[in-house]
C-alpha cells in the first residue's frame, strides 16, 4: 500500500490509509475509518481514514474548506458523521455529544478557547468541575492542583494562578486552555489553530507545550495553516483535500514543497516516490 493518493475525485478508501508498516498505526489511540459527512448535498468528508497514535502529535493540514474542522467536530461529538466508524483504543465508539467525547478522554481546544475572562486561572481550570468540601468550594486544593498542572507542563510565565484570565497574553490563554484539558486527564487533545494570532515567542511557547503533551503520552491533533509550525511540532501529518484524506504518514515523508503540493492539488509525486515500496 502506498501513501500516494489517487486523484481526489476518484479516491478509493485505501488511498488515504496508513502504510501498515508505519510505526504509528498499530497502536492508534483513535482510529477513524471511512467517515463521511454530508451537509445536504454538500459532501464535507468523504471516506476519511485517520490514525492518531498516543504520544505523538498529528498535524491535520489542508486548505480552507478541505474538511479539517468538520473532521475534528465529528471526533469531538459536535457533528454526527453521516457514515463510517470511529475506534477508541481499538473499540468502536459512538460519539454523539461533546460530553461523550469528554467522557472518553477527548478534549478539544477551539480557537476561541472558551475561557471566562472575568474568572481567574484556577476558576477557569475547574469551571464546571469544581471540588467542594461540604458544599463549599475547596479553593486550596484547586489552587494546588492548578499550580501542579501548570508546572508539570512547564507553563512558567504566569505570575499568579489567581490573576484573571482576561489579563493574560494570547499564549498564556492558550496554555491555560490546554492545561485544563490535561488536568481533566484527557488522553487526546484536539487543538484548532493554536498558534494563529500569536507572536513569535508565544508561538514557541505553545509549540513547546504541544510537545510536552506528546511526551506525557497523550495523543494530540493539531490543525494548523502554518507549515513552519507543523514541521516543527508534528510527528505525523495528515492532508485533507476537498473532503478526502489524500495523504498521511510520518513527518519525515514530507517536506515543505510536497506538503504545499498536497494541500493545493491533492497529490504530490514526490511523496509517492519517497514512500513507495
Amino acid at each position: 500500500m502506498t501513501n500516494a493518493p489517487g486523484s481526489p475525485s476518484t479516491g478509493t478508501p485505501s488511498d488515504g490509509r496508513d502504510d501498515p508498516g508505519d510505526p504509528g498505526a498499530p497502536s492508534a489511540l483513535l482510529a477513524v475509518r471511512g467517515v463521511s459527512k454530508y451537509f445536504g448535498a454538500v459532501q464535507a468528508l468523504e471516506n476519511v481514514d485517520l490514525d492518531v497514535p498516543a504520544g505523538q502529535v498529528t498535524a491535520l493540514i489542508g486548505d480552507n474548506g478541505a474538511g479539517k474542522s468538520t473532521l475534528i467536530k465529528a471526533i469531538a461529538g459536535i457533528y454526527a458523521p453521516s457514515g463510517g466508524q470511529i475506534f477508541w483504543k481499538g473499540h468502536e465508539v459512538h460519539i454523539h455529544t461533546p460530553h461523550d467525547a469528554e467522557a472518553l478522554g477527548i478534549a478539544t481546544v477551539y480557537q476561541d478557547l472558551a475561557l471566562c475572562d472575568n474568572l481567574d486561572i484556577v476558576q477557569n481550570m475547574y469551571l464546571g468541575h469544581e471540588s467542594t468540601k461540604a458544599g463549599v468550594l475547596d479553593e486550596i486544593s484547586m489552587e494546588l492542583a492548578t499550580k501542579q498542572t501548570l508546572s508539570d507542563l512547564s507553563v512558567s510565565t504566569v505570575k499568579s494562578v489567581r490573576q484573571v484570565v482576561g489579563s493574560l497574553s494570547g499564549g498564556q490563554r492558550q496554555a491555560i486552555a490546554v492545561a485544563r484539558a490535561v488536568m481533566r486527564e484527557s488522553q487526546l487533545v484536539i487543538m484548532d489553530e493554536p498558534t494563529a494570532a500569536l507572536g513569535v515567542s508565544q508561538t514557541a511557547q505553545v509549540l513547546h507545550l504541544i510537545r510536552t503533551l506528546a511526551q506525557r503520552g497523550m495523543g494530540v491533533i493539531v490543525i494548523s495553516h502554518n507549515l513552519n509550525d507543523v514541521f516543527q511540532v508534528a510527528d505525523r501529518i495528515a492532508v485533507l483535500y476537498l473532503g478526502n484524506l489524500v495523504s498521511s504518514g510520518p513527518v519525515a515523508n514530507y517536506d515543505m514543497s510536497s506538503a504545499v503540493e498536497l494541500i493545493t492539488t491533492g497529490e504530490s509525486v514526490r511523496v509517492a516516490s519517497s514512500v513507495a515500496p
Binding site: 476561541d112 472558551a114 475561557l115 475572562d117 472575568n118 469551571l127 464546571g128
Partner: peptide, 18 residues
Amino acid sequence: RYIYAIGGNTEAARRAGI
C-alpha cells in the same frame, strides 16, 4: 461561581457543562 462564569462568557460556561 457559575453566575460569574455565565456573566463572563455564557458559551464557555455552557461548554464547561454548566
